[in-house]
Amino acid sequence: MKDKLYEYLLMLGDNSMILGHRLSELCGHGPSLETDIALTNISLDLFGQVRSYFQYAAELKGEATEDSIAFLRFDRDYRNVILVEQPNTDFAHVIGRQFLFDAFHLPLLEQLMKSNDEMIAAIAAKSIKESRYHLRFSSSWVKRLGDGTEESHNRMQEAINHLYPLVSELFRETETEKGMKELGIGADLELIKESFDEKVKTILSEATLEIPAVPSRQTNGKTGIHTEQMGFILAELQYMQRAYPNMQW
């Protein structure tokens, strides 16, 4: 049970960490100062969540710290979904990735607030306010880009076409998630999916965008099978800890 809980915390934390990492790559390169600041705020919120999850995970595991968990695992041991490791191809991809994740994350946190695990419930209660704002922000940008110019519409639709097939992984229950759900610790992904579908349908339609009819992809980030992207992400993320092991920073 402890192992499952630990793994569940990794799933929660890794999604926030890898998405936060992607957003942090944009710091200083945004399309306007205001958006630059906004995206960094989201990144900071996510890293705040990561620290809460990993500090708790470290406690459970013993002989671990938030940093050893964040920086010293092999790629197969990261539990994030493939959606969040997608690159910052353009601003439409950044916003699309954020929106699809937020539309999943908010109902997830709503459930986790009622978790039997007090720590998870507390972390979720704090994170949910952040997530609610993230969803508001990303939704409004999906609408701006979708219903903006012809170019922005095409780019946004293209981004959705690329990213949408990856969302099925969010709802494909792993053994760990099943176990956590049954114990009343984790969320019921089916319930999240209802809320997710509703939100995505509403926002995309307001944005004059279509939900693509492309088949979903069988990705398995949650069990550690990542894309080529992950190696590059980890190369930067882990660089210092790998190059200079066992030091204080």
């Binding site: 390169h29 945004g30 399309p31 306007s32 958006t35 353009d90 601003f91 609408k143 701006r144 880009l145 219903d147 903006g148 110019t149 170019e151 922005s152 780019r155």
Partner: peptide, 13 residues
């Protein structure tokens, strides 16, 4: 790279 984004936001509003 941000130009089309800014244009879109103006057009949308």
């Amino acid at each position: 790279n941000g130009e089309w984004v800014r244009d879109a936001a103006m057009a949308h509003s």
